[in-house]
Simulated assay, not measured.
Amino acid sequence: MTATTALLVLEDGRSFEGKAYGATGSTLGEIVFNTGMTGYQETLTDPSYHRQIVVMTAPHIGNTGVNDEDDESRQIWVAGYVVRDPARRPSNWRSQRNLEDDLRDQGIVGISGIDTRQLTRILREGVMRAGIFSGEDLAPGGQRLTTDELVERVKGGAAMAGAHLADEASTDEPYTVAPADGVEEIAHVVAVDLGIKAMTPHLMAERGIRVTVVPSSWTGEQILAENPDGVFFSNGPGDPAAATGPVTALKQILDAKVPFFGICFGNQMLGRALGFETYKLQFGHRGINQPVMDRTTGKVEVTAHNHGFAVDAPLDGDTDSPAGYGRVKVSHVCLNDDVVEGLECLDLPAFSVQYHPEAAAGPHDAAYLFDRFVSVMKGERA
């Protein structure tokens, strides 16, 4: 066995042997797959992947290198990284360094050279916990650990169900993103950072919104004390059922009838605040090519996704909010599996989507939703 050997071990006992990619050592997490052909830098720095090992279904990764402009947050968040064929050298005019160097520098343990197609077919049966092991963590003192021993380590890792992770991915202190240069300020929004991506306040700033980004631990009273024209809840990691604090804060926002917009985890927070349940998907939606219908317009959009949980709400007709917030309808639905992809309150100025209209990386079909938020803050119907 060479020092570059790595082993990916699944919770069910299946394993894949390949080469170490990035840092050597060991890592545990929920293993999921991403179907995006591009945008690996944005994927790696998306806080919603906190505590997850990400498998890229595209076979060739790293060919455009990495740069200092496309990161979606302050660090790489994935727990581990799995690729089939890493690029030997990057080739892009914007590239500043090699992807593997970034992974190594930030201590991200990965594996390459395995059959990611076969692995993805396994994960379509249902995501599970996994571990990547290399170097001394695979063979301490030169004696390789057995697969059974490694499976026991994997089973000792934390499950995603029941995990409250938003506080770990959130900012420690509030900060402000001013309207873009030359754009007149039209509104002030408090954005609750549950694991926010940098492109989100950027797109609001382009529309003249001054964004105050605040920690996930902020209460409804703290948010309302900022006197916002609107409140935004971001994407983020973990089980929405465990995020009781943000749900409580959101109920206070709804009670105050302040315009609200939520993305991804923010959609799940709205669903739970309205009294609906959430549930874990079999293998989730992760990629930049998911078809969603906007039922308001009938338009089908190609959208970017990253979620393993969804809201359990009736798809057809208007529904009374179980928590007493009036009528609610499912505004967007995934055409692959009929998963709820958006909610709209009919008696309150609040709406949300499960996917990522900021689309970094990904298509821009849904960028209009930020304009819709502006309309809601102006008192118009979504």
Rank of each mutant, 00 (worst) to 15 (best):
A158V: 14
A161D: 14
A163E: 06
H164F: 14
L165P: 03
A166G: 01
D167F: 12
E168V: 08
S170Q: 09
E173T: 14
Y175A: 01
T176S: 11
P179C: 04
A180W: 02
A180C: 04
G182E: 11
E185L: 03
V189R: 08
V190L: 08
V190N: 13
A191N: 12
D193E: 09
D193A: 07
L194V: 03
L194E: 14
L194A: 11
K197C: 05
T200S: 10
P201W: 09
P201H: 10
P201R: 05
H202T: 12
R207A: 07
I209L: 07
I209T: 12
P215E: 06
S216V: 08
S217G: 07
W218M: 07
Q222M: 11
Q222N: 00
Q222C: 08
I223C: 07
L224K: 05
E226L: 03
N227K: 14
P228F: 09
V231E: 14
F232E: 05
F233W: 15
G236D: 02
P237E: 12
D239E: 12
P240L: 10
A241T: 11
A242F: 01
T244K: 00
G245N: 08
P246W: 07
A249G: 02
A249P: 00
K251Q: 13
L254P: 04
D255P: 08
F260R: 10
F260L: 11
